[in-house]
Design a protein around this nucleic acid. Structure first.
Lengths: 199, 199
DNA sequence: TAGGTAACATACAGTCTGTATGTAGATTGA
DNA sequence: TCAATCTACATACAGACTGTATGTTACCTA
């Protein structure tokens, strides 16, 4: 039998503390930025001390990486959740990009995933995170379309990366006040432009 | 009495010191990163003191902005220099993107302009810098192609931004070891995909 | 040429990061 | 079950950095 307040297992304590730190860091990193957020502020928000932070994470950057990974997973989950797989390859791509743009409107998400993330962790690390979450379904959708013959054949790696880059910039532009319709129209045209000419 | 090495006008001193600081900062910002480079290191490289730095620039970020602006101008100049204007709109776009990819292979340039720049100065500031230098010719090329009827009509602002984003990501991927041919092929396909269907 | 100003150099205060050390509670093996 | 050990922290410390305040020298102007 376990007491209600004391008497917590080490695993529970670790899990709770890590979650608190990640949540507090996410809040501050998105409200301000990685560089402008100090570890004293993070631990105050989380209700622990810096000792706990440096016990669970190698350094501030490792905490940031955990936040980014969690956020990328959340975005991927939202996209997954919003895409009915009964569409044509082309329509599935459009639906996926709409879902991505919608997911990226969560406050601060663009800064976290598109600005600070690449600068702090590097493009290579971000590619790794992206590829293990959201980009995989994009890539699979493109490969499927190419195999079905409805899209011209191109190197999947490169095509995925460049389309993802366009999506990213669209998300940034929309957050900065750009017209959703304009950027959506361009994205659709880019995708449709890759369709095989004779169909 | 006046030595020949002393006796410099204030304007000359300012110009020389600012140039030294920008050059030193550029070297270190590209070798390492903005965050990992300290002002003591910069002024040591430049052969001045921190007093000089803070006399000429409001803060470290302002010095970084000066470096980025200079670098963006250099990239734009290289592109301008390499594009013979006797080509078709489509070929001019291809030539421009080749020139851009070539220019971005200068060491550290991608970190400066594509990673640290957006994170430190913000996307809005980077858009301003890009639009006053390199992106303008891209945008003009696109508008020309649309007017000539060889490219489908789309919002120029959005189209420029998303194509530029694809170019940027291609530059990053190539620097990371990606295949130049692959990324070039995708870029060409994206551009050609925007061609008006009936020609 | 004298007074003012620009271009620095030096000194300082505050803050941050990462580490080293100390301690209470949990875990484990006998 | 109980001592030994280890985990999960809290506290204290050292080094570095940023921006500012102040002092000094060279230039500029009337």
């Amino acid at each position: 039998m376990q007491q209600e307040s004391g008497r917590r297992s080490n695993r529970d304590r670790t899990e709770a503390t890590r979650a608190d730190l990640i949540a507090a860091a996410r809040k501050l990193f998105t409200e301000k930025s990685y560089a402008e957020t100090g570890t004293p502020e993070i631990v105050a928000e989380a209700g622990v001390t810096r000792g706990a932070l440096y016990h669970h994470f190698a350094d501030k950057q490792a905490l940031f990486a955990a936040v980014v990974e969690q956020e990328a997973a959340a975005v991927a989950a939202e996209i997954e959740h919003a895409s009915p797989s009964t569409l044509s390859a082309r329509d599935a791509l459009i639906a996926g990009s709409d879902a991505y743009l919608a997911a990226m409107r969560a406050p601060g998400r663009t800064r976290l995933l598109l600005l600070d993330g690449p600068a702090v962790l590097g493009r290579a690390a971000m590619d790794g995170i992206d590829n293990s979450h959201g980009n995989r379904s994009l890539r699979e959708g493109l490969v499927a379309a190419m195999r079905a013959g409805s899209m011209m054949k191109l190197p999947p790696e490169a095509l995925t990366a460049l389309l993802a880059a366009a999506f990213d910039r669209a998300a940034l532009a929309i957050e900065a006040g750009g017209s959703v319709e304009s950027y959506r129209a361009v994205l659709v045209s880019l995708i449709d432009g890759l369709a095989s000419r004779r169909q």
